[in-house]
Simulated scan of single mutants.
Amino acid sequence: MTIEQQVIEQLSQYRQKKARIQALSTYSVGAGITVSRLNEDDQLQELHRKLRGLPSYMYLSGYEQKLESAAHAYMTRYPAGVKAQKHAIPVQVMDPEDTELLQELRRKIQKVIEARGYDIRNGIEEIMERLTELQDLQAEVNRIDTVLDALEQYKPDYAKLLRLVYAEEMTTTGICDELKVSRTTFYDLKRKAVSEYVFLAR
């Protein structure tokens, strides 16, 4: 299959991919959580990584800083995942005040676990497959949109034609009427538009 044929196939699947994204986004994984929400959580994790690079006093309240200090004082490891983090926090220590702080921290983490439905989710492999599929489809659709947007900057007629053909799936007659061109001109423009798209997308 040539690059041009691959591009045409990708463009031809644009609407189908958009529909699949919509369907996947509403797939429930339990506790009112959808796959799209899990995808948002991935972006939330990225924000957390950035926040960890800042001094905690810039984004934590005084009490939250006390909780953080207690955790750092007694935790010997910092595992990934909220459930593992909860188990890594000691239940009781010598200092009664610190014990209370650690228990409060465990309660806060438990609320996160319950809110995200981690205790009741089943079929985690299936959920991860759907999440991966959603992310891959979003990346593919975003890639097509990005190339079409770039094409629109200097060949707006080409971009419009490709959107009408592949994104809106208009008939040839409808597109000819929309662009006010003959069928012969349409096929010539379509060939040139696909060629220009291939140049940008490669």
Rank of each mutant, 00 (worst) to 15 (best):
F186Q: 03
L47Y: 11
S36L: 03
A23E: 14
T132R: 05
R20P: 02
A23Y: 13
P96D: 09
R202Y: 02
T173H: 07
N39I: 08
E46P: 05
E196W: 05
M1V: 09
L47S: 09
S36Y: 03
R107Y: 08
T184D: 07
G62V: 12
K86R: 15
P96S: 09
A84K: 10
K86Q: 15
R20F: 08
P79N: 10
A159I: 01
V29L: 10
E4W: 09
Q153R: 08
R163A: 01
H48T: 12
A73I: 06
Y27T: 01
C176L: 05
L179A: 09
E40H: 11
G81P: 02
G53Q: 15
Q45M: 11
R143T: 00
I109V: 10
Y59F: 14
K86I: 11
D149A: 10
V194D: 03
K17T: 04
V93T: 10
L131G: 00
R202S: 07
H48C: 13
P55V: 11
D177R: 12
A31P: 05
D42S: 14
D188G: 14
L164I: 06
T185C: 13
A70G: 02
I127A: 03
A159Y: 00
I3K: 12
I124G: 03
E152Q: 10
Y187A: 02
M75P: 01
I33E: 08
Y158V: 01
Q65V: 11
I89F: 04
A167G: 06
I89H: 02
D145I: 00
I175P: 00
I124W: 06
V147F: 02
L11N: 05
A19Q: 15
R121T: 00
R130I: 00
T132I: 03
E97H: 08
R183L: 08
Q153K: 07
R107F: 04
K160F: 10
E140A: 03
L24G: 07
T185R: 13
F186Y: 15
K192A: 11
R20T: 07
Y14G: 00
V93Y: 07
K86T: 06
P90W: 08
D188K: 12
I175K: 00
K18T: 06
T99V: 06
V141G: 00
E97Y: 09
R37D: 13
E97R: 07
A167P: 01
V181D: 02
S36A: 12
L44M: 11
T146A: 14
V91Y: 14
L134C: 01
D157L: 06
M94V: 09
T76C: 12
I109G: 01
